[in-house]
Design a protein around this nucleic acid. Structure first.
Length: 154
DNA sequence: GCCAACGTTGGC
DNA sequence: GCCAACGTTGGC
């Protein structure tokens, strides 16, 4: 079992939006970065733990615990001309972009970015690295445990 | 809105 | 294959 942190802009899909969806599950559309795609394609398994992170918002931070709910499959928005994620270079028979379904297990308090940065045990969390822009990053088990502990501590 | 950091594109 | 120009991310 692996662990991941996945960023979503709450203006697009917030943790509340995901909770309100059928089975609290949303397709993780719009990933257009090869490294992030490869994590979904090659690294993720159903049941993997996911930290649901809100980015590009007033208070960035971890706002929920989720799980990987499907294996990787083609992201339909790449073929949708009206979608901002449309990729005219991608072919149906050879899709360039993939996604997984993500199921929210529980909403948590917002464990904010400053709190994460302030924790000595999370110094080398991938998402905290300078210049990191990847929307999907692996999370080490020790970091997962620490973060869950911080979330439970309220 | 600014801008640092990084990824992608395309001319050569 | 190099690398300058450009585009995007995302915190502030």
């Amino acid at each position: 079992m692996n662990y991941w942190l996945m960023k979503s802009e709450p203006d697009e899909v917030s943790v509340d939006d995901a909770l309100a969806a059928p089975k609290s599950t949303v397709p993780w559309t719009g990933v257009r970065n090869y490294q992030a795609r490869n994590f979904m394609r090659d690294g993720m398994r159903v049941g993997d733990g996911v930290l649901f992170y809100h980015s590009s918002c007033a208070e960035p931070g971890i706002v929920g615990i989720a799980r990987v709910a499907s294996s990787a499959y083609p992201d339909p928005t790449q073929f949708d001309r009206k979608s901002p994620y449309h990729d005219p270079a991608s072919k149906k028979e050879e899709p360039r972009w993939l996604l997984v379904d993500v199921q929210v297990v529980r909403k948590t308090r917002n464990l904010t970015l400053p709190e994460l940065r302030a924790d000595p045990e999370l110094q080398d969390l991938v998402v905290l690295r300078k210049g990191n822009r990847l929307s999907i990053t692996p999370v080490e088990p020790k970091h997962w445990k620490r973060i869950v502990k911080l979330l439970d501590a309220g």
